[in-house]
Simulated scan of single mutants.
Amino acid sequence: DRDDDPGRGEVSDGDPAFTTGGATVDGRTAGYRFAAVEVTTPRDETVTVYAGADLAAARDAVGTVTRAMLAGLPLLLAVVAGVTWLVTRRALRPVEAVRAELAEITASGDLARRVPVPESRDEIAGLAATTNETLAALEESVARQRGFVADASHELRSPIASLRTQLEVAAAHPGLLDVDGLVADVVRLQHLAADLLLLARIDAGDRPPARPVPLGRLVRDELERRAGAGRVAVRASIEGDPRVMGVPGRLSRVVGNLLDNAERHADAAVELSLREEAGTAVLRVADDGPGVPAADRERIFERFVRLDDARSRDEGGAGLGLAIARDLARAHGGSIAVGDAPGGGAVFEVRLPAT
């Protein structure tokens, strides 16, 4: 702050200018850091006042720090590297355990084994848990595949054995040749091979291009194709013509398999209805047969499952019709379920998203 002392000069408002240079003080030359400030004297003379600080102390301090860092840096880097290695090794130890167990599973082929899940609730534990879920799904898939192959082999063995027997008898006694029986066995074998091929394509993810399909027209065509060929008459109630996205041939297969199943178990009548409910095409096929017990309503959709094992294979089929119908319905984004028909018997309901 300024006062009324006439001997004091007035400092200009400008910031001081800093420079670095050499100066000789008391016969000793050294480097200095200078600050220059302009001052106005009481006589209105402007002079420049210089103030300097010796840089030797600062340079000595910087040199000391530099030498200390150069001496301690290698040790510091070694400590950091060691700590990093230990921490990383400990963190990746569960990953190595998972890798080693997967290698053992691959070498042994034992899909029942599982990888260890660490107690920590981190990403590695999540990876191990997901790996175990994948192994469980893979084990189930392989088991199903093996069962499918075994069941298919068993089902194919019967018609092939029958054909061989009839041909051997015909070769020895031509007069005993049963042409109708041979044709029936060949047709059955052909249908079974077609079913197995379709299931294999579904399992492989085969998805032909979908297009809008008028379901009412498709059901009418299927009924006309079967007219007079079934054991019982089919009463149909078709309301409208809901459209669904799908493959016409495979949708016809769903309808045909359900009608085949209903006709096989019906006593005297089969009823089919089709309508659209809240944006969903609903197809129902009911029969007046013995129905399906509640405990078996999920099992009947498994492959090669027949609840009527006492029947002959010609009457009971190979147990693939409902499995194919369910897989095809799911492939079209729909579902299929079985319940009790209002008049007794079983009713199968297929729901497909309408467009």
Rank of each mutant, 00 (worst) to 15 (best):
D1C: 13
D3M: 00
D4E: 14
P6M: 03
R8C: 08
D13Q: 15
T20Q: 12
G21W: 04
G27M: 03
G27R: 03
T29A: 09
V39H: 02
P42W: 03
R43Q: 14
D44E: 11
G63T: 09
M69C: 15
M69W: 15
M69G: 14
L73D: 08
L75I: 15
L77Y: 12
L77Q: 13
V80G: 08
A81Q: 06
A81S: 08
W85R: 13
L86Q: 12
A91F: 14
E96I: 13
A100N: 08
A103C: 05
E104F: 03
L111G: 02
E119L: 13
E123L: 15
E123F: 15
A125N: 12
E133N: 14
L138D: 12
E140L: 15
E140S: 15
S141R: 15
R146L: 06
E155A: 01
S158G: 13
I160Y: 07
A161F: 11
Q166N: 12
H173A: 01
G175M: 07
L176K: 11
V186P: 06
A194Q: 13
L199T: 12
D206F: 13
R207W: 08
P208W: 08
R211F: 06
P212R: 08
L215Y: 03
R220E: 14
R220D: 13
A227K: 15
A229V: 11
A233I: 06
V234R: 04
S237M: 11
G240F: 05
D241W: 05
P242H: 07
V244G: 02
L251Q: 02
R253M: 09
L258E: 01
A262K: 02
H265S: 05
V270A: 06
L274G: 05
R275T: 14
V282E: 09
A286E: 02
D288V: 05
A294R: 04
A295I: 10
A295D: 12
R297V: 02
E302Y: 11
F304K: 00
V305K: 04
R306A: 09
D308G: 01
D308S: 02
A310K: 09
R313Q: 06
D314P: 12
A323H: 00
A323F: 01
D327V: 10
V338G: 03
A341S: 07
P342R: 00
E349D: 11
L352G: 01
P353L: 10
